[in-house]
Amino acid sequence: MTNATLNAPAVPSRASKAKAPSSSAAAGRKILVSSWLIVAVVAAWWFGSANSTNFFIPSLESILEALVRDLGNGVIISGAWYSLSNLFVGLALAAFFGICGGLLLGEVPLLLKIVDPIIHFFRAVPQAALVPMIIGVFGMGQGPKMGTIAFACMWPILLNTIDGILGIEPTVRKFSKVYRIPRGLHFRRVILPGATPQIVAGIRVALPIGITVMVVSEMFASIEGLGFYILNSSATFKVPETWAGALLVGVIGYIISILFVLVEKRILRWYHASGAQ
């Protein structure tokens, strides 16, 4: 299969691993180098917008005020809880079906050959276009939203799982066969771990898709969630709240991706330790 598209960009391997900072001064310098720009950007925004007279570009101060206020009174917390539970249930479903389907298709080449064009068609459907369809048919509850997220996130996971299984060294398979490893054990201890790095990469690709579909589904039809908070704020001309909501979703996206990298490092520790790339 030629779907290099789905290979997530490599985890940044910064040059830092080659040489450890020799002193605390060097470490301080490094932190300074990596953080001055973000500080400068925030400062520029803060002072640049401080006396803003444009109604649609409120000062950063008022945005943060709105954010802190709505974080304090629980409006955002309950919205975030709603959104994130949709996201995680959807992702979990996608991972389950994607991995199971991928294992099946990866192990049965004939089946893969038959359904390959169909999979590629479904993967190419713009996931956001599914939102009005699925929500329109099944209503605007939480279930349809989770389903939409799951459907959108499944394809990269499925395709990467297949790739991972096809990428397992034939020698490894032969060994497993020669030693007559029982089927269940072969699946659990040979096939699954062999495909894990690719599966994890697939989930990494699916994550931003899931967040995007989550926001779209809530902006399209919802009375809860972060997407609704943003849209509702803009519809009622609460401009600082709109900015605050958008910023918050961004920060949440960033935090989730950092957490994912940590989990990935933990899961794939054996893989990175083995020096395989």
């Binding site: 931003p208 995007t212 926001v215 902006m219 997407g227 709109t242 958008a246 961004g250 960033y254 991706s257």
Partner: peptide, 14 residues
């Protein structure tokens, strides 16, 4: 890193 994990569609109302 922040930019790439930012769901830009959330910025759309803005």
């Amino acid at each position: 890193d922040f930019g790439r994990s930012f769901p830009v569609l959330a910025l759309m109302p803005v």
